[in-house]
């Protein structure tokens, strides 16, 4: 059992350790970055500790992901109930519209209303991350064999029991894939937050662009990539194990 567990979680653990090592030991690679960026005085981003940036990055993405999941899954469930069916096309279209807006545009529109800081980036990530979740939840629920639902009703299950015991478990792998796409995209997109005063792993990148310091850009980009790989591999293993 423990062997099984270790085998299952080996990949995410490796990516996670690489990410931590990257945050803690970036200073050790000074010689390498000096070679990349010989003209600058500082070649290691040091205004804020990488671990702190990582924490903030994770926080913003998590808050947006939790909200997007609650709203996305909740909304998709609501419009697949008999009472909400009329709104299904509307919700599907609004969710698609959310993703056609570039996050930068959402930020530009959100800042005047919400001010600088973390709130506008959370809103941008939420809107941007909603579509994959809504779309996959709809596909997951609509994709269930109608005879299964028919039998569930015929056996005397209440609509709540059908949702909890039949529809959600059967749609879960598809819904989870939607959340995974949403979160992975948003880990990269969240870096934009640095432009509106929300400090995270985007800081070194923006700072690098502003100051013409390629080493900073590389550091931010590598850490964001490692974070995305870690989280994505965790999701890959959350999918229900295929039974024997």
């Amino acid at each position: 059992m423990t062997d099984h567990w270790a085998g299952r979680w080996r990949v995410p653990v490796i990516w996670g350790l690489l990410l931590l090592a990257g945050c803690l030991l970036m200073g050790q690679l000074e010689a390498l970055f000096r070679w990349v960026e010989p003209d600058s005085r500082d070649v290691i981003f040091s205004r804020v500790d990488f671990l702190v940036l990582l924490g903030r990055h994770l926080l913003v993405v998590s808050v947006a992901a939790v909200l997007a999941t609650l709203i996305g899954v909740g909304g998709a469930i609501a419009v697949t109930r008999p009472g909400g069916r009329d709104f299904l096309p509307l919700v599907a279209q609004v969710a698609s519209l959310g993703q056609t807006f570039p996050p930068v545009a959402v930020l530009a529109l959100a800042v005047p209303v919400l001010g600088f800081g973390t709130l506008p980036i959370v809103v941008a990530l939420l809107l941007y991350g909603l579509l994959p979740i809504v779309r996959n939840t709809l596909a997951g629920i609509e994709g269930i064999d109608p005879s299964v639902r028919e039998a569930a009703r015929g056996m005397g299950m209440t609509s709540g029991q059908i949702l909890r015991q039949v529809e959600l478990p059967l749609a879960a792998p598809v819904i989870l894939a939607g959340i995974r796409t949403s979160v992975t995209i948003n880990i990269a997109t969240a870096a934009l937050g640095a432009t509106v005063g929300s400090s995270n792993l985007g800081d070194p990148i923006i700072s690098g662009i502003v100051n013409g310091n390629t080493a900073y850009i590389v550091q931010g980009a590598v850490l964001i990539a490692l974070l995305a790989l870690t989280v994505d591999s965790v999701f890959a293993r959350l999918a229900p194990a295929r039974r024997a």
Partner: peptide
């Protein structure tokens, strides 16, 4: 629901729950 639980129901496509074992499917009602 109470009515349906006291009436057995079987259909052509079976409508067995694919994520449940045979034993669990049978024990549903």
């Amino acid at each position: 629901e109470a009515l349906r639980r006291r009436i057995g129901y079987a259909i052509q496509s079976t409508g067995l729950f694919p994520h449940w074992t045979v034993a669990r499917n049978i024990g549903l009602v």
